[in-house]
């Protein structure tokens, strides 16, 4: 990263070469990324969160392999595990055994562990893609509002206020409800995932937008922007080459913090029955099926609930740590 750093040490770095040489080669060219990484490595809680995020991402990516190893496809019914009279898993403990690590579902006998592993795919996929949509829209709108100011800023800011005031969950439910089963050249679960990514991403952009706008407002008054302008740089060049590189840190932090929000959102929609359609396993969908069995098979409810909780918590811990590491105001 060659752009000026937003760290207190910047003034020293800009000093004549003699000082830099005296300081020795070790202190030169330490980028914001390197400083942040050094701080982040010391933050054990954040590193633990980050580790868990990587772990979940691996599980999602390797879901077919993991499930193959254990030999219980997520949609296979294991009726031999179900007490025909009660509809609940046999042998107490919700059917938990060496064979079925987290037990089996009541009635169908589907393996809960396999379904959790496959459910990670949907959560991670929609969480990431929706965040990408929010980040792109939020960054573009925020940077335009902050840089140009005036009526453009007023318009975009008002728009963000309105968006933040919307009953998101109801809107999302309505959209899934009114859209047909095949549209935009997609159908089935492909379409559902696309719709969910769009809805979640589209309605969450103001969170990023506000932060980028605020950062841009203060950045555009800085000397390096003025210098660039006096050298004849156009608006688009300044936005792209001067402002955007300086916004990478906040974008990264708030994207990391938006992913867990979006994962929760997806889980909520699946819980309400407007997410990805069954029998595709989703954590939210599993929880909604577990509603009727919280008394007889608590493992059915605890497994997806804890999966959501731990994943979201890990993202939040990592995001908080990343913010502290990238924020020049927090001194280590």
């Amino acid at each position: 990263m060659t752009a000026p750093l937003d760290v207190p040490g910047k003034a020293e770095e800009a000093q004549p070469e003699a000082i830099a040489q005296a300081a020795g080669a070790r202190d030169r060219g330490r980028s914001l990324g390197q400083i942040a990484w050094m701080r982040l490595r010391k933050d054990k809680i954040a590193m633990f969160g980050g580790g868990f995020v990587v772990f979940m991402a691996l599980i999602a990516a390797l879901a077919p392999v993991i499930v193959n190893l254990l030999g219980h496809p997520p949609d296979a019914w294991n009726q031999d595990m179900i007490d025909p009279a009660l509809g609940t898993p046999v042998g107490g403990m919700g059917g938990i055994s060496g064979e079925h690590l987290l037990g089996v579902e009541p009635v169908t006998g589907r393996d809960i562990f396999s379904r959790i592993v496959y459910g990670a795919q949907i959560s991670m996929l929609i969480g990431f893609l929706a965040t990408l949509v929010s980040v792109v829209i939020g960054t573009v709108m925020g940077i335009i509002a902050g840089y140009f100011g005036g009526w453009v800023d007023a318009l975009i800011s008002r728009l963000m206020d309105i968006f933040l005031a919307f009953p998101l969950l109801l809107f999302a439910m309505a959209m899934v409800g009114v859209l047909p089963d095949a549209a935009f050249g997609l159908s089935g679960n492909g379409l559902r995932i696309a719709i969910l990514v769009f809805i979640i991403g589209f309605f969450n952009w103001p969170y990023i937008g506000r932060i980028i706008r605020g950062q841009t407002l203060s950045l555009r008054e800085r000397e390096f922007v003025e210098a660039s302008r006096s050298l004849g740089a156009g608006n688009f060049y300044i936005l792209r080459k001067e402002l955007l590189p300086n916004l990478v840190a906040p974008i990264l932090v708030y994207a990391t913090l938006l992913i867990p929000t979006n994962i929760l959102f997806e889980a909520a929609l699946s819980f309400l029955g407007v997410g990805v359609e069954p029998p595709t396993p989703t954590w939210g969908g599993m929880l909604s099926e577990a509603v009727d069995y919280y008394d007889s098979a608590p493992n059915f409810m605890l497994a997806p609930g804890l999966a959501i909780f731990l994943t979201v918590l890990a993202f939040n811990l990592f995001g908080d740590g990343l913010r502290d590491a990238l924020d020049p105001r927090t001194q280590s």
């Binding site: 929760l264 909604s288 919280y294 997806p304 609930g305 909780f309 918590l313």
Partner: peptide, 22 residues
């Protein structure tokens, strides 16, 4: 507080029903 914002309400609701109603 961090745990609270990471918990989906439909999960805490079910857990509280299981614990304090069942």
């Amino acid at each position: 507080a961090l745990a609270g914002v990471s918990l989906p309400i439909f999960f805490t609701g079910l857990v509280s029903l299981a614990l304090f109603s069942y």
